[in-house]
């Protein structure tokens, strides 16, 4: 049995002071998803078998599935718990130490990137029919990956590791092929989620 939806008919509209239980739980579960994806072993891809980690994939997916505010909350929750010492940063690291290292910029970028991409995802859902969403999800996540995630990542390496812009940019380049693939997977997966659970974000946005 899976009638999960409370129908919204006949002008029943209760004022919602804060998030409903549904959103609260989704934010918490997606924070956990980001955490788990950072600690499970990567997936070997293609004939080279280079493992790609799933963390950026999880962050992009969270944004595409939950929308701006809730995605930022999920990433924020994940960061707070990881800073507090649960070993859920990539490679099983934890604590405020991460802010000292080379990946500090990427970590911070997740928060900003999730919010911006989530807002874009809401826009895509409002504008485009289900069939064309994969393409626009992909374009939006590519844009956010390149501008925000890699932007902050390069900035982080420049500040923490005192690298020059050029050196940081080259160090960052290695992540591009994997990230483009991840954005594509995220776009396909997110549109599948919206088909399977139309009221996770679609109906919220359309009613708004």
């Amino acid at each position: 049995m899976s009638q999960k939806t409370a129908p919204h008919g006949q002008g029943i509209s209760r004022p919602r002071r804060t998030w409903d239980a549904q959103s609260l739980a989704l934010v918490a579960v997606f924070a956990a998803l980001i955490a788990v994806s950072a600690i499970v072993p990567g997936i070997p891809v293609g004939s080279f078998g280079v493992p790609i980690t799933l963390q950026t994939l999880a962050v992009v997916l969270t944004a595409l599935v939950l929308g701006g505010t809730r995605a930022a909350a999920a990433v924020g929750l994940y960061l707070i718990v990881a800073f507090a010492g649960l070993p859920i940063f990539s490679g099983g690291r934890a604590g405020l130490q991460i802010l000292a290292g080379g990946s500090a910029g990427y970590v911070v970028s997740f928060l900003v990137g999730a919010y911006v991409l989530g807002v874009l995802a809401e826009l895509v859902i409002r504008r485009f029919a289900a069939a064309r969403r994969v393409l626009w999800f992909f374009i939006a996540s590519l844009l956010v990956s390149v501008v925000i995630i890699h932007g902050f990542g390069v900035l982080g390496m420049m500040i923490n590791l005192k690298l020059s812009w050029n050196a940081a940019f080259v160090a960052d380049l290695a992540y591009y092929p994997g990230d483009i693939l991840k954005d594509l997977v995220a776009a396909v997966a997110a549109s599948a989620v919206h088909r399977a659970f139309p009221d996770v974000l679609v109906r919220r946005v359309k009613r708004a």
């Binding site: 049995m1 899976s2 009638q3 939806t5 409370a6 129908p7 919204h8 008919g9 006949q10 029943i12």
Partner: peptide, 20 residues
Amino acid sequence: NGSGKSTLLRLLNGLVEPTA
């Protein structure tokens, strides 16, 4: 499965609201 019995139960504490 799918007969509506879960929905019937969920009506009883307001998890599902009746359309009519």
